[in-house]
């Protein structure tokens, strides 16, 4: 693993254009090691596009991004080895069993065969899904699917994990459990990069950025942001920013 300094994600003037449309406009920010970094924005603000560039799924039009010590444009495969990613759209295999999905990704990340078995057991235990190991993923309720997707994204213990709207569409109880998983991962030293629609979730983040029309309009701890905008919750911060006040 390559060593990196204080920042595990360093973004400098990152831009993505699709024809004339600028989806991500010259953004720069850094994410500290071990942070829970909230990445907020309205629909179409450019969050997913930015995240796809950071995970090596999409090549940037210009600018730089260093993730886990590797340049996303020059060494996308090295980046991929060191990150976990959970897509906005559920993307595990519905026609594979719970354990088969974990085994597949553990295998792709080159975890040795013996360790894979242990890994499957510990993951299922942590998720409380021991009884569901033989169930087809397609038969699980959405909340369980999302938790499983998070666990699979972390199967190789990456230093940084990207979660794209992990809690959209799940019930409040599962949402809470999900954030408990995020806190636990953070306590274990993993950096988490989370996009969300739910502004109450922004309060749980170490630091939060807010994107409007492809640009980052604000970036600080939730406390400081509320002070700066003279409001008492993140919802109002967001509304003020989105309306351009």
């Amino acid at each position: 693993m390559k060593s990196y300094g204080k920042y595990i994600v360093e973004v400098e003037n990152l831009t993505k254009k699709f024809g004339d449309f600028v989806a991500v406009d010259n953004i720069s920010f850094n994410v500290k090691k071990g942070e829970i970094f909230g990445f907020l924005g309205a629909n179409g603000a450019g969050k997913t596009t930015a995240m796809k560039m950071l995970t090596g799924l999409l090549s940037p039009s210009s600018g730089n991004a260093i993730v886990a010590g590797w340049d996303v444009e020059k060494n996308p495969e090295k980046v991929k080895l060191n990150i976990g990613y959970m897509s906005q759209k559920f993307s595990l295999y519905d026609d594979l069993r719970v354990s088969e999905n974990i085994r597949l990704y553990a295998g792709i990340y080159k975890i040795p065969g013996k360790e894979i078995k242990i890994k499957i057991n510990t993951l299922l235990e942590e998720l409380g899904m021991q009884d569901l190991r033989k169930k087809l993923v397609g038969d699980l309720p959405l909340g369980w699917k999302q938790k499983l997707a998070f666990a699979v994204a972390m199967v190789h213990d990456p230093p940084v994990v990207f979660l794209d709207e992990p809690t959209s569409g799940v019930d409040p109880i599962t949402r809470r459990q999900f954030w408990e998983m995020i806190y636990k991962a953070s306590a274990d030293g993993t950096t988490l990069f989370v996009t969300t629609h739910y502004l109450d979730e922004a309060e749980y983040c170490t630091r939060t950025s807010i994107m409007v029309d492809g640009e980052i309009k604000a970036l600080d701890t939730p406390e400081n942001l509320k002070q700066q905008f003279e409001v008492d919750n993140m919802q109002d911060v967001f509304v003020k920013l989105a309306r351009g006040l």
Binding site: L57, E77, K80, S87, K89, F90, S91, L92, Y93, Y105
Partner: peptide, 11 residues
């Protein structure tokens, strides 16, 4: 169905 995205983000 989007499953290729999860594969594309692996090494």
């Amino acid at each position: 169905i989007g499953t290729i995205e999860q594969l594309n983000v692996t090494p």
